[in-house]
């Protein structure tokens, strides 16, 4: 505890055990007891169901799977080795490939979302006030619609008898009567439509606050489109952009519903692999090790964006 109210001289206080807290004279002890009683229920809850489980995850990743799917507590790094590809039948790149694919899918999805969100944000700010609320609501509805329903909706929209598949079959891009999934295309279209609002909403907030005089100045000085964007728009919208990127990159890396439904069994991402370990394979230690990898990837993404922000502040 510290004395928050600095402008009360020390001698005016009756004794060191008292402090002035928002105009009330209270005993420090009482104040801290009060603070603890407010914080502790939520804090303990998070400790028991969040922090300790995460530590348990760490511990379990060094155990191994027993014959019946139970956890055997023999300290080993077999799971890490297996992740790196050293299995019973020699080295294979399968697991590493899945991790790599997860990173690629997350990065490409984020990139596509950013590319589509900029026009969308400009479009939204250029709407008159009244219709802007309507457009924003239209953006919020998919944002709040259940993930499973939205993925399922794509499952339906890309089905063989639907206009899109028929059109593509007509052109000869796919076999007539086949669906557009499982495919990379289906995964990306699902992922992008899933995460686009996560980028578009913070970006819209940033674009709304933008100082357009700078854009005009850049135009006056004969900057082309790209240079206007790079030097006048990008720096101003950076805060919103970095929030959007973080909000997309982190969950996209752990996503398993979209690849599961639209990518088929061959399009495994790390999320699917984790789900498999906790589902059919019942290999919790390996699943825990995979989760740690995912956590590591997430933290590095977060650190990168944090560092970027700090650099910005210094500059």
């Amino acid at each position: 505890m510290t004395n928050e109210n600095k402008n009360v001289p020390e001698k005016d206080k009756p004794d060191g055990s008292y402090t002035v807290f928002h105009g009330a004279l209270v005993k420090k002890k009482v104040l801290s007891r009060r603070a603890f009683s407010f914080v502790s229920p939520g804090f303990l809850w998070s400790l028991i169901f969040l922090v300790i489980p995460c530590l348990a995850l760490f511990a379990v990743s060094f155990a191994s799977r027993g014959d019946y799917g139970q956890i055997e507590w023999n300290f080993s790094i077999d799971n890490m080795k297996r992740l790196a590809g050293f299995g019973y039948f020699g080295w294979s790149a399968d697991n590493l490939l899945i991790v790599w694919r997860s990173i690629v899918v997350a990065v490409v999805t984020t990139f596509l979302c950013v590319v589509l969100s900029y026009p969308l944000a400009f479009f939204l700010v250029s709407r008159p006030d009244k219709s802007r609320t309507v457009w924003l609501t239209l953006l919020l509805i998919p944002f709040w619609t259940n993930l499973v329903i939205r993925t399922y909706a794509w499952f339906l929209a890309l089905a063989p008898n639907m206009p899109l598949a028929k059109l593509l079959a007509e052109v000869g891009a796919i076999e007539p009567g086949t669906a557009l999934y499982p495919s990379t295309f289906a995964v990306y279209i699902g992922m992008v439509s899933m995460f686009l609002p996560f980028v578009a909403l913070p970006l819209y907030t940033a674009v709304e606050k933008m100082d357009w005089a700078l854009v005009e100045a850049a135009r006056d000085l004969y900057s082309g489109g790209w240079r206007v964007f790079r030097h006048a728009i990008l720096p101003q919208t950076m805060p919103g952009l970095s929030v959007g990127i973080t909000l997309t990159l982190v969950p996209a890396m752990g996503m398993f519903v979209v690849p599961d439904m639209l990518g088929g069994s061959r399009y495994m991402l790390i999320g699917n692999l984790i789900q498999q370990q906790f589902g059919t394979s019942r290999d919790w230690p390996f699943g825990a090790a995979l989760s740690l990898v995912l956590m590591f990837l997430t933290l590095s993404a977060l650190m990168a964006s944090r560092r970027h922000e700090l650099k910005k502040k210094e500059a």
Binding site: P53, P251, T298
Partner: peptide
């Protein structure tokens, strides 16, 4: 940090940790 933890962790990690707990 504790407060922001669930906001920034992918929910699958969080779910898996809970299953173990």
């Amino acid at each position: 940090m504790l407060l922001h933890l669930p906001v920034v962790t992918p929910d699958i990690i969080f779910a898996v940790a809970l299953v173990i707990a």
